[in-house]
Design a protein around this nucleic acid. Sequence first.
DNA 1: ACGGAAATGTAGCCTGTGCTATATTTCCAA
DNA 2: TTGGAAATATAGCACAGGCTACATTTCCGT
Lengths: 151, 151
Amino acid sequence: MSSDDLPPEPDDGIPPEATDADRFTNARAIRSTALFEDYTELIADLTEEFGEARITDIARRLGVTHPTANKAVLRLKREGLVISRPYRGVFLTEAGAAMAREVKARHRLVVRLLIAVGVPPEAAEMDAEGIEHYVSETTLKAFEVYLDGRQ
Amino acid sequence: MSSDDLPPEPDDGIPPEATDADRFTNARAIRSTALFEDYTELIADLTEEFGEARITDIARRLGVTHPTANKAVLRLKREGLVISRPYRGVFLTEAGAAMAREVKARHRLVVRLLIAVGVPPEAAEMDAEGIEHYVSETTLKAFEVYLDGRQ
DNA sequence: ACGGAAATGTAGCCTGTGCTATATTTCCAA
DNA sequence: TTGGAAATATAGCACAGGCTACATTTCCGT
């Protein structure tokens, strides 16, 4: 009656196939960091554009209210990704900046790949916003190889 | 000081570029339906394998505890995606089955595309679990065209 | 320099999604 | 047939992430 009918293979060091549970657990873990990635990337953009990231601008760009953005920034602060003083702008720490750089690179690569396989640029930008968080290092490397190998 | 410097173009029926906020709002909306998609797909699988989907099996496959699965099933029920009686299995409604079919088709297509661009099958399966929810109809069509045009 | 507008902060609410602990029901084997 | 094991349900906690309403601070123009 159980669905757990994998034969009990000896532990020979070869990693067993990822189970369904592994995949879903992985996806949940990513979902919980996706928001941080969105914020750090956005804060980096705003800092570059305006010299600082204001709560109001963060909120408007994300399409949420200021209190929501403010709470999120508190969490980012707690995680050591940003620093901020009351009534002042928000700035990335080195850790936050590193995350932003990585996220941005991933984002660009995902968009390029989608366009390369024929997705209209508008749709590519839209879908990449969600997809980017779930693209592993392995997949990212494959995207690079694919894009390099075709021009 | 504002980042909202789009000129006030006359409403000529041409859809303006999607703003950052639009993209993030879209991603948030999808995130809230992703769980339903995972559940309906899984319930369809279990029903096919065992004739019914038991809470325990759902929980194990998703890597969560039974109470978590139970609560989620209550929400699915409220949304009209499943029917269930206490201490009995869970079954998809027609709406739930339709969602499951669509999700499964999308999942397969995403995996196929990832593999087609060179992603190792293991990684493709793993990443698809998160990516699939964010792939729009437009992008899906592009994937189909791409895959058809290369075999 | 000061008063109102804009920005920011805070309080408190709701829902979702996870958990543990405990109760209840069902099922199966002796 | 009945008692214990397995499955399911429920209660209650925590936190994330959204909101509105309201308080506070900053900024800017007169």
